[in-house]
Design a protein around this nucleic acid. Structure first.
Ligand code: NAD
Ligand code: NAD
Lengths: 223, 223
DNA sequence: AAGAGTTTGTGAACGGGGGCACAAAACGAG
DNA sequence: CTCGTTTTGTGCCCCCGTTCACAAACTCTT
């Protein structure tokens, strides 16, 4: 709780939400959306926690970082809480996104409808392979990787997705950063390094399977 | 996540490796493979840590849970360490895997070569949609979801991947568990519940993007 | 053989996060 | 208004994981 984020110029406005909580807020949001679709107007922390698959005390503590949006003895107003979480995460606005590497995975991502429905809009699909240019995937043209800079500045893109081979990932990341992208989601199985101020999250399928394999092997050893 | 495993019947054989360490071992393994391909025979914890993108003290502590495989003043033998990690994770053997839901994502996964190269073999592709049956993806037939039980028992499948819609995920998981699958990798954006002894890991693209959006919004608020 | 230089393995301190349990707050009934 | 019921918000404690820092162990040189 000391040196973190040294000077903050604006009042005390920007609250500090624990990383673990940030990672769960989208889960709560999804659960609330499901409840709202089912016509539920109000819910207790217990109900919401069950729907989200977490402990109710943890849920309440998480929500308390956003403010005091519940009513004791009653619970939470589903729509109100939904809005508050969406605002906190930043998905009340639309985020333009570019995807680089339109192979097997890139196609699947481009066709994924869950993007748009959660506040993300794919504004460009880029690939280094000339033979792919001009192809239309999910209504978007596949364009040359060199168009990155123009697209980023035109649309004000802050988030980039890497679905290129591991060998190209660092290069792609460097180019993204040079264009002004400050958040990267990396699907390539490689460690990429970026300057301070740029966030990288990685999704690594093989690692997930290997973790499962480890536990599986362990179960087998116990018998 | 995993059941607590209270009593341990066998001697003291099965070491307890922290979950956080387990999640990093595959990263180390990948870095070692890259080093080996480059002809490196030996490496220090500092080098390996850099390649893996972690702190060297953390790397050494992680490796120390496996045993004492380094040489002070020298470092680690790349091939030897590679084997030890692979053995510990359980990827010296081949793990048969089934994928359920062969839509956009399922196709990409089935075509992913990173599977086989890391000790996982896709033995079946299953889909509830009859019109997809008989299609061949990456050399494997798409078959009826009802064939699950037969396939699992024939091949001794322990690991299942869910790439079906969120609405179907819980059903698919239940069927998997009923057939004897004890590890599930879930790509559907829904919370699934399983009995003790079954491990579930989820990969949720939208959540990753929302986490990035949160930080992106925060960066914007600071200016 | 001894000393200088390297690098591992780990004890110890620290910080974040999880969960219990309870006081505070809202609400309804009488 | 008062009492009983419900449910939130949070203080407190404990555990896990991270990092520092150093002694132990090994190599190489002289
Ligand atoms: N397919 C999967 O299910 C899957 C799963 C997990 C991870 N991944 C990873 O995702 C990445 C993509 O996988 P894939 O199966 O789609 O591979 P792919 O070979 O089908 O597609 C890669 C695409 O990237 C393009 N590309 C290559 N170099 C590029 C560059 N420098 N700039 C821009 N584009 C470039 C290629 O032209 C190709 O279209 C890989 O790193 C892979 O390891 C894939
Ligand atoms: N496409 C992506 O990039 C992406 C990314 C992240 C998450 N996801 C998630 O992965 C899942 C699959 O996405 P998709 O884009 O491939 O969807 P999709 O609609 O293209 O494919 C879903 C497939 O599942 C099959 N299916 C439906 N019900 C089934 C059942 N009960 N049993 C077996 N199979 C069944 C359908 O016939 C279809 O072939 C979804 O839950 C989606 O939210 C997709």
């Amino acid at each position: 709780m000391t040196a973190r984020t040294p000077s903050r110029t604006l009042g005390e406005s920007v609250r500090d939400i624990p990383e673990a909580t940030v990672a769960r807020l989208p889960v709560y949001l999804r659960a609330l959306n499901t409840l709202a679709e089912a016509g539920t107007r109000t819910c207790s922390s217990e109900e919401l926690a069950t729907a989200a698959g977490v402990n109710s005390a943890k849920l309440r503590k998480d929500l308390s970082y956003l403010g005091s949006y519940g009513t004791r003895g009653v619970g939470y107003d589903v729509d109100y809480l939904r809005y508050q979480i969406a605002r906190e995460i930043g998905v009340t606005q639309d985020w333009p996104v570019v995807i680089v590497g339109i192979g097997n995975l890139g196609h699947a991502l481009a066709n994924y409808s869950g993007f748009r429905s959660r506040g993300f809009r794919v504004v460009a699909l880029l690939d280094a392979d000339h033979s792919r240019h001009g192809e239309v995937v999910a209504g978007v043209d596949v364009r040359a990787f060199d168009d990155l800079e123009e697209i980023v500045s035109t649309h004000g893109v802050a988030i980039g997705v890497i679905a290129a081979p591991a060998a190209a990932a660092q290069d792609v990341a460097d180019r993204m950063v040079a264009c002004g992208i400050t958040s990267i989601l990396n699907f390539a199985p490689s460690v990429i390094s970026v300057p301070d101020g740029v966030d990288v999250r990685k999704v690594d399928l093989s690692i997930e399977l290997q973790i499962l394999a480890y536990h599986e092997q362990r179960k087998a050893q116990l018998s």
